[in-house]
Simulated scan of single mutants.
Amino acid sequence: MPNTLLLWDIDGTLIDSSGAGKRALCDALRIVLGIEDTLEWLDFHGRTDVWITRQILRHHGLPETSADIGGVLNAYLERLDAAMVSEDTRVLPGAREIVETVAAQPKIAQGLLTGNLRRGAEGKLAPVGLWGFFPFGAFADDSEFRNDLGPHAVRRASEHHGVPFAPERVFIIGDTPYDIECGKAIGAQTIAVATGRHSLEELREHRPGAVFASLADAPAFFAAIG
């Protein structure tokens, strides 16, 4: 039975979707609300889809009800598949190799901890052949706030595998300070990778347990999880 749990972020950690999500959201805003917005004013990296949409509605002085947020996000999800096909999405260096290696290790479980909606996570990972490696996870469907997601992911991991996971054997892997904070919120270990918008130096300031330029050095990654 597994005794170690890895919880993966998606964008900037596992994949680079070349802005497909942002383009799909901009299309949704235009179609649903008649808003032309590049979203250059909003730093949404490491945030949840629900939080992002609320900030956009607030910025434009629009209602922020669940129905309003849901309407935008449903339109976003409808356009995400097309955006993923048309964009140059790629798996980031080393990510596929590590995920595949973990999948063959009976002592290690892995799932997702992401700001994407579940449907959005599948829409981003399925085209690159990674979705099937993650039988559980926590998503923006669970909470607007990333720090709330850890308990959902750990609970689902325990339900799926039928064993508890001690916080010191749970590793949150991501590319933003919010991933690090999310891990610390549940007493988990944290691994940061500088394959997103944040540099090694910026990530180190938040004191993750380990930090890498990328996931290309698999032996170093596995050494970090012991």
Rank of each mutant, 00 (worst) to 15 (best):
L149A: 03
I191E: 04
W8H: 00
G61I: 09
D175P: 02
A67N: 15
E87L: 10
L117S: 07
T89P: 10
E78K: 15
A24I: 10
A140D: 06
G12A: 08
T89K: 12
G150K: 03
F171N: 03
F139H: 02
I35Q: 03
P127N: 06
M84S: 02
A223F: 06
L149F: 02
E202D: 13
R197V: 14
D88S: 15
G137T: 07
L215F: 12
D11G: 00
R79N: 12
D88A: 15
L113I: 13
I108H: 04
V154C: 07
A194H: 09
R204P: 08
I173Q: 07
P164A: 11
A140V: 04
V32C: 11
R119L: 10
K184V: 10
S86F: 12
T114D: 05
F221C: 00
T4M: 12
S158V: 14
A121F: 04
V154I: 13
L125R: 01
F171S: 01
E159R: 11
F136T: 02
V102Q: 02
L7N: 03
G132K: 04
P219C: 12
G94A: 10
L33K: 13
E201P: 03
L77Q: 13
E168T: 09
C26H: 04
G137Y: 04
G123C: 01
S86P: 03
G115N: 08
A218H: 12
V32W: 12
L77F: 07
G187W: 14
F134W: 00
D81K: 13
G115L: 06
R58K: 14
F134P: 00
G70H: 10
D37K: 03
I52V: 10
L130M: 13
A138H: 02
L73C: 11
R90K: 15
D27K: 14
L14T: 01
E78P: 10
I56R: 09
K22F: 07
G123E: 05
H198K: 14
L62S: 00
L149S: 04
A192P: 07
A218Y: 10
